[in-house]
């Protein structure tokens, strides 16, 4: 189990959280590379269907931020 790494699907709002993730880069904050970010125009775009689809595709976690 020690080698298991979570796979996290992330939906980020273009206007806030996606910008924040950019900012984390500018500030060179280091974090684990387990995320895959999908940029959405607003967190309201994220339908429950996407969340279930991500889990169906093997995501261990889904993070919606906006």
């Amino acid at each position: 189990m020690s080698e298991w790494e979570a796979k996290i699907t992330t939906f980020l709002c273009n206007w806030c959280s996606y910008g924040a993730a950019d900012l984390a880069g500018v500030s060179r904050f280091q974090y684990p590379p387990n995320f895959r970010i999908i940029r959405v125009p607003c967190s309201a775009r994220v339908s429950p269907k996407f969340i279930l689809a991500a889990f169906r595709h093997g995501a261990d976690g889904v993070w919606v931020s906006g």
Partner: peptide
């Protein structure tokens, strides 16, 4: 797709995983 601010800049210490992430992001 963002392989700088959200990849190379934030995964400095794991170049291999960062490369894999970049491939995933390009595929997406």
């Amino acid at each position: 797709t963002n392989i700088r601010n959200q990849d190379s800049w934030v995964h400095r210490d794991s170049p291999e995983l960062a490369t894999e992430k970049a491939k995933d992001l390009v595929r997406m």
